[in-house]
Design a binder for these strands. Sequence first.
DNA 1: ACCAAAACCGACCGCTTCGGTAGGATTTCG
DNA 2: CGAAATCCTACCGAAGCGGTCGGTTTTGGT
Lengths: 162, 162
Amino acid sequence: MLFSTKAEYGVRLMIELGRQPGSTPISLNSVAEAEHLPLSYLEHLVAKLRKAGLVTSTRGAHGGYRLAKPATEIRMDDVVQALEGQIAPMECFHETPEGRVLCSHEDDGAGGCATKLLWTRVQNGVTKALAGTTLAELVEFSTPHPQPAAEARAKAPVVHAL
Amino acid sequence: MLFSTKAEYGVRLMIELGRQPGSTPISLNSVAEAEHLPLSYLEHLVAKLRKAGLVTSTRGAHGGYRLAKPATEIRMDDVVQALEGQIAPMECFHETPEGRVLCSHEDDGAGGCATKLLWTRVQNGVTKALAGTTLAELVEFSTPHPQPAAEARAKAPVVHAL
DNA sequence: ACCAAAACCGACCGCTTCGGTAGGATTTCG
DNA sequence: CGAAATCCTACCGAAGCGGTCGGTTTTGGT
């Protein structure tokens, strides 16, 4: 398996936040119920998202989480990376700040390790897939509701189909 | 990490076999020394490659392993899959014989799980990268020897630079 | 002032995989 | 026969995964 359920759950969480249009924070508890996920586990995941600056939190009663920026500006590679850690196909792959890909045992005289070509291609494939997808796309994809009656939503305890 | 060292070691092993042009089998021991990998561990990996029909073995003294078909016909998705098992971005992804991708919890009324779009894209990216690379490419990439004097090679105990 | 709701934090736990080792059995060539 | 090799099974420490638990802190409502 390429990714663990951390990515799955975390992305689901982000989508759930992305569904809420307003700026009212959403409690983890409601997310947990909506997605049928264990609350305590989500706490760990949302902590990573918060530290990565993808969500903001407000504490106390009626507190909860909100997206830190509009869903259209959230790229999924940032989300997955926050949840799973550095995304590299192989142990020996580091990424420099400028996006250069390096292999740690480049000292073997014969022009770098033979597998580098392969892993570089894989890395490109994954990165393009993730970076080319925004949270907004996933939100759209998950709710085929063109115009959800944009009114009367300020106080209603929103219960979405799922 | 997307893949473990099983893929790394196994691919290195395949490359090592691909370097040998003739049909003389290569012992695991020589591969282990050339690549500085533990022999006992390689045994496990090569077993998977053999069961997948990617290499053939001959037992007894002067035995060893050979590629089961020419390197140009070996696609790296088969190699990696043999070593790492089914390649799917997420637990819930199965692939039907026809190549259809399925998510196991497709029962959630709202048109399948929201993350499916993302994981499908990732899967495509990885699969294209792996399936679009042949072992021959990696062999070529690893040895910048245009014409290695194709003669006088039948008995020489080939020691390659690495 | 108090209570409940919520975010926060850290420890723990059973399980599986990973990377590797060990010891043997079997086959084959010289 | 003996050495070289494949083959097979079991085991082992470490790490990560998925999850639970108990507690602390912050905050709004009454």
